[in-house]
Design a protein around this nucleic acid. Structure first.
Lengths: 342, 342
DNA sequence: TTGTATGATGATTGCGCTGTCAATTGTTCC
DNA sequence: GGAACAATTGACAGCGCAATCATCATACAA
């Protein structure tokens, strides 16, 4: 009988080849380019694969071909709803194209991101997709040296490592604040968890609007990760510090949700007493009561676009697209949580 | 000068060795077991590594040592808050121990899970952690054949593939329903998204309680992924079909949140008109208004325990713990959304 | 019949690293 | 002074697979 020589060992291509009475090369070809092999041998190899329950060793395959079929993705958070759509888009494009998507988490910390990038590069991904533009100098260097396509997403930069697909966080923050000023609010506050560097950009946008409308900046921020309860806490702080506030721009929808609950708890009517706008337009915002105004960001499209660009580069032997900076914009979604002042 | 022979090529261990004027083996040792190398050579190698910005090729390393340092994790959803704590615990244990955590998403579909398991096994993880016990026969076979520790989590089974750390979903579902009956509710409804097999187990628990209290089962389920808005929709359906309902057990906290919003929208007072209990005790439940009663599941502890068991097996040359089934239980968290009937 | 083109199959080599064992050096003890 | 030993270091083979080129059989044209 043709059994694996060593029982305790994993089944290798050689075992399959031996069993099918062909050479290892032919067995390999049946798996990768079946059309190059005659029907007879192909059937023999196929059944040997099935009988032995052969699983190709991707490590060896990747080492020999220097082609890993892996796409590296680094996001600052897995649980943040924002990255659900984002990762879904990446899967939707890459999996059918025969690539694996490898996700690492940077926890909103540049240091962790640098480590994650190093780890990722050790896996030899064929491209890397990053959330944000704030990589460390060291990380930028490693990425450039790696010689694979790199796409920075979620925000815009004038100096991309390679490709940049995003939106203006400052502009989006400005739009959110502007929406409140346009509703004649004068005392417009801002709460955010500045762990997230994009959140800080949105505050910049808010400051721009504040300047433009000659308003007084009222900003509360907390040195901890964003969460729903934090939104409530910061709202209290904001209102006790600036009791005249009639509208608040929350750095993201979770904070907005927490703020809304706190209003309900304190019998603050939304939007009559206080207008609330969030950011990112998560699913929950539309069905909250009252529904929460927000800024919708093109998360799915952004990741999709990034993925498509990468596929084009990989398949097109490395030719970069003409446009290396792509701004996908954002949309203001006015709902019931924001109303006219007075 | 000792530069890499080929400029367009990645830096290899040989390049480092040449530059440091040592053998490749020594260079390798400096990186893996520095205490075995003299201080002099160690310094030379270290600086060569730095100067050449050498990144070890994990592929080659893993192939040669048959030790990948990877832990495979398969979860049904990344965006579900439940798996935030879970993944955090895994990282907290494995990263300091020098392992990488590889996460794949099964989207609550056994077929996708089977594929994810196959993909994972091709990466040669040193252990696999699964959420749930409902793997396909094929998947079970592959896992057993792989010969690595496998831990099934989140629920209990009498027939674990290898190790099982979880809690009784039926029991927890019973406890949730029981809580409502104990508050003298007679018409107790249940809404859930049965995509999630654990959710179905909780319905079983609900049915047990219904039987015990001679109540009429009132179950609504939707054939789509769970979400906050879905909770609202199913609540409407439940109440229009059984208008007498005064309490509802929601399959998870997101559904409960959606149900709560719908009540606010329709001026149904919670808990006066309707009691609501969720499941999983996500962060948002405690800060909602009113705060939502729930069943707290030991997600962090469960993953932590699983990780520790795995480390012990890997380090202890494969000895399994005496106890292969570990029930970590659950806790009923009664909050303001559930009140006495009448 | 011979020569050539075509397609199918196999032998060999090497991807970059680590396990193993041999070789070398220095050290200690009697 | 030499044996016995420990501490370093290096040579070599091989992990499992794929790229490359060589070989072989077949078909067809001249």
């Amino acid at each position: 009988m043709t059994l694996p020589k060593n029982k305790s060992r994993r089944v290798t291509l050689d075992d399959v080849a031996t069993r099918a009475r062909v050479s290892a090369v032919t067995a390999s070809r049946v798996l990768r380019k079946p059309e190059m092999v005659s029907a007879d041998l192909r059937a023999r190899v196929d059944s040997a694969v099935r009988e032995l329950a052969y699983v190709p060793n991707q490590l060896a395959s990747a080492l020999a071909s220097s082609h890993t079929g892996r796409i590296g993705v680094i996001v600052p958070s897995l649980t943040n709803g924002v990255f659900g759509d984002y990762l879904r888009a990446l899967h939707d494009v890459f999996i059918p194209a025969g690539f694996q998507v490898l996700v690492l988490n940077s926890h909103y910390l540049p240091g962790r991101e640098e480590k994650a990038i190093a780890t990722m590069l050790g896996q030899f991904p064929e491209a890397i997709i990053l959330a944000g533009i704030g990589q460390t100098t060291q990380a930028r260097k490693s990425l450039q040296q790696a010689g694979v396509p790199v796409v920075q997403t979620m925000e815009m930069t004038d100096d991309p490592i390679d490709i940049n697909v995003g939106l203006s966080q400052v502009g989006a923050g400005y739009a959110a604040a502007r929406h409140l000023f346009d509703l004649d609010h004068i005392h417009v506050g801002q709460i955010s968890a500045p762990h997230d560097s994009r959140s800080r950009k949105r505050v910049e946008g808010y400051m721009q609007a504040v300047g433009e409308f000659n308003a007084v900046p009222m900003v509360i921020s907390a040195d901890q990760p964003s969460s729903v309860p934090l939104g409530g806490q910061m709202l209290i702080e904001l209102m006790s510090r600036w009791p005249k506030v009639t509208a608040v721009f929350c750095g993201n929808d979770n904070l907005a949700l927490g703020a809304l609950f706190e209003c309900q708890r304190r019998r603050i009517r939304v939007p009559d007493d206080l207008s609330i706008i969030g950011f990112n337009d998560l699913e929950v915002s539309a069905c909250a009561y009252p529904s929460i105004s927000s800024i919708a960001t093109p998360r799915y499209e952004m990741a999709q676009r990034a993925a498509e660009i990468i596929l084009e580069i990989i398949r097109g032997t490395g030719t970069r697209p003409k446009q290396r900076q792509i701004d996908l914009g954002f949309r203001l979604i006015a709902r019931d949580s924001t109303g006219r002042a007075g």
